[in-house]
């Protein structure tokens, strides 16, 4: 039954993990951080990734009725690939009103995107379901 820090440490144990954080996408607040930020400042990264997550969570094209009803946004994760790395943003669904996601930053050469995506899904569930 992990808390925020245990969850981030587990994410950092993934191959190629460079940085991890739990971010609130309404406000841009980092609730917890581990490892590094691509810009050397977790708070800046949190504010920037929050804008991205908010767009995905709120734009109609990603939240159509076809995805069915649910508590949180139907978007599950966002994947950004850059020349040097991967970023996976995984939405965390809570049964009270919240707007948080996990952000994992991976090294492109040593990271495994498919594995990271699966593990992050698992971590996002265990973070709130125990």
């Amino acid at each position: 039954m992990p808390g925020i820090d245990e969850c981030l440490l587990e994410a950092m144990a993934l191959p190629g993990a460079l940085g991890a954080s739990l971010v609130d996408w309404t406000s841009g607040l980092a609730l917890g951080t581990a490892g590094d930020s691509p810009v050397g400042d977790h708070e800046t990264t949190a504010a920037e990734t929050a804008e991205l997550a908010r767009s995905a969570a709120e734009f109609d094209s990603f939240t159509t009725a076809a995805d069915g009803p649910g508590a949180g946004p139907p978007v599950e994760d966002l994947i950004i690939t850059t020349r040097a790395g991967y970023h996976v943003l995984r939405f965390v669904e809570t049964s009270f009103d919240s707007s948080v996601f996990l952000h994992l930053w991976l090294d492109r050469d040593s990271g495994n995107l498919a594995l990271a995506r699966l593990r992050l899904r698992d971590l996002a569930e265990r973070l709130v379901l125990g």
Partner: peptide
Amino acid sequence: LHDGELEICHLGAVF
């Protein structure tokens, strides 16, 4: 409540 839920909710309320 689970640990993660408590922390997410409480931190949000504190800030």
